[in-house]
Design a protein around this nucleic acid. Structure first.
Lengths: 382, 382
DNA sequence: ATAACCCATGAATCTTCTG
DNA sequence: ACAGAAGATTCATGGGTTA
């Protein structure tokens, strides 16, 4: 992972040098061909919702006798696993070429195809970061009572390689999840109601994805201004959410009908106010605060005593932001992290949560020095 | 899928002819070699928890500096995807040979290995029935804040082929899930507390699976007396739950320590009372009753009027068990299913639930004719 | 107006037995 | 193998109509 600042700078440079990138456009034709027209190392994120290769038997009816509207479109038909694998390898290879070294890939699928996709992308060198389970709150039931209700789909999130500095907006996710770490299982409803695109009462696309899903993906792993490529654009959920969140987008889509619907849809989409997007990212992109700054600015005065939670050790804050262990007469000195590490004999230590101080403002309560950092951030906002 | 009765008969026959099966034993040595000693088509279910091929970099430590006891045992190291794939193909091939044609396979894994396992088992001819997400209610957090909390593992449930008559105890699962279809995402806690095997305070096996997981797997897809094979037996969760549920088991395990712990553990396990193990049976496995039998035996007299729920149609029961639509003068006649189908113009109709009658015994209440069938079944029970 | 009721529908590898 | 009949089978949600 990398700091936002570094990546932002790099992204900006890339956009400038790649002024010819067809952002805001849906490339027609086969997606592999279309991606060939894009330069190497030019996009920050690929989100792909490829055909699932469902292999359906006959018609299926509900217990009440009505028919299930199945996905029987030609684009989901493959002759064999071999044919599907070849197709998968082709588009993943192009996606890999087009991605920046620190870019990332998302693919969504079901048990019909996701194992093949996952194995192939590993073979190509992608490094899986998480598999994410989209738990559908309202899936279609299993009408015949023959299996477990197929109530989820799987997303794979992968970087270009083991050492890549991928983007992950940890704070934004934790904030979105009520101050708990965002887990690998996401509960979201399927796309229906007003969000579902319809033409004359029938759905435009059989497998339109919910915007909430793309919202979370883009918010978690891209930043403002990033270029997002969707090789299977469909009716443009990726583009609509990208526009809303201030990301640039490129689509590939073979079908005229889907392209038309997508353009119309994205046209109507309004970007969120810049300040809103900033706010969502504020905690994540908050500048690093040196402990010394707190001292410099009087949030913790030199001479203040700090101690671990169990008061096994007490140290004194020095003017330069270093700590000196009490009673050691200058022999045990270090940064908040380093001294904590040494005292515990641990491989690492987060000094912000290890060291505490007595907060006079709240009647002498013991608080981690991170609380002082939060006050500092609040005071220096903007 | 197949009725319980049919499979039960076959399973029994198989056990009799395979009296040499080493049930209740843990075969030492390499699992591929060990499986070679088992005859073809001899087990009903394979549950496998293979090495995950985890590729952890350096040592992992928590924010407080304590070390995470990562999976770095020698049996989990593989040189490359190629080596892991070869290993996977080898044990899956043996599992396939040993399984009966209507048997089934379960494999559990994480994103490190499950995509490779899934693709290979598809290549070998297994037919995926569901992928199941075990959603951990208490996963280990992501200490570094670099990814989403890895809060689930994935199981694949597969039959021997597209046309196999696999076992699925639909009613038992629905009952277990408070009368709603069991979904593909299962929320279960990880294995700890008293259930976790420890030796001198440290865990015996790094990846011991919770018994609740095996309980659900075996209850859903095996029946009493079935033979369950676990090629990666570990400390014997599969064997313990199998014994409890009245299933037979065979294990393979290389490590002496795990075998010893497993034997000790399973020895202590007590089988549940037979009556408790009986699962809720689906109607599919109840004996078939011809509508004519009800008429023959006086449970519905010839001349009785039957009608659909909204009384759009009324028909009269004839002496041979056929129905005649009132007012049609012999032109609209058929079986309970056929006439219901024709009147509705539906592709099919379950006459038992479509047609109703007035039950004099309960003051003229409207009841589906299935109620009469239930009375008949009750009266003719052994 | 509001509640009650009915109806439509969603990436689905969706039956079993007899002749 | 294939055709035909018997028989088993659904949950959450949104929108429209009725009471």
């Amino acid at each position: 992972m990398e700091t936002t600042k570094t990546r932002a700078t790099r992204a900006k440079t890339a956009v400038e040098t790649q002024a010819d990138l067809p952002t805001g456009l849906i490339l027609p034709g086969d997606c592999v061909e279309a991606m060939r027209s894009l330069p190497d190392n030019s996009v920050d994120c690929v989100f792909a919702d490829p055909p699932y290769n469902l292999q359906l038997g006959g018609d299926l009816s509900r217990p009440d006798g009505s028919a299930v509207d199945a996905v029987t479109d030609h684009w989901d038909q493959f002759d064999s696993f071999k044919a599907y694998d070849d197709f998968t390898r082709a588009w993943l290879t192009e996606a890999r070429r087009v991605l920046k070294p620190d870019g990332a890939l998302w693919v969504i699928g079901s048990y019909h195809n996701i194992f093949r996709v996952g194995a192939i992308l590993q073979d190509l060198g992608f490094w899986i970061l998480n598999d994410i389970v989209w738990r559908k709150s309202n899936p279609m039931p299993n009408f015949k009572g023959t299996r477990f209700t197929n109530a989820h789909e799987t997303l794979i999130w992968a970087s270009m390689g083991e050492k890549s500095k991928y983007q992950f907006n940890y704070r934004a996710m934790k904030t979105l999840n009520d101050e708990l770490q965002m887990r690998s299982d996401w509960v979201l409803p399927i796309c229906n109601g007003a969000e579902r695109l319809k033409e004359g009462g029938t759905k435009v696309h059989p497998t339109q994805k919910p915007e909430a899903l793309l919202y979370r993906v883009l918010l978690a792993t891209t930043e403002k201004g990033d270029v997002v490529l969707d090789p299977f654009f469909g009716t443009g959920t990726t583009g609509a959410v990208a526009k809303r969140l201030g990301r640039q987008w490129i689509g590939c889509e073979r079908e005229n009908v889907y392209r038309d619907a997508a353009y119309k849809r994205i046209e109507k989409e309004l970007p969120l106010d810049e300040s809103v997007i900033e706010t969502m990212q504020s905690k994540k992109s908050a500048p690093r605060v040196a402990f010394g700054s707190l001292v410099e600015n009087g949030f913790l005065k030199p001479g203040t005593e700090v101690f671990d939670k169990k008061r096994r050790w007490v140290a004194t804050v020095r003017a330069d932001g270093s700590l000196e262990l009490n009673g050691s007469e200058g022999k045990q000195v270090g940064s908040i992290h380093g001294l904590g590490k040494d005292l515990q004999g641990a491989p690492s230590c987060n000094g912000w949560s290890f060291w505490h101080y007595e907060d006079a403002a709240s009647g002498g309560d013991m608080k981690p020095i991170d609380a002082a950092r939060q006050l500092y951030l609040l005071a220096t906002e903007d």
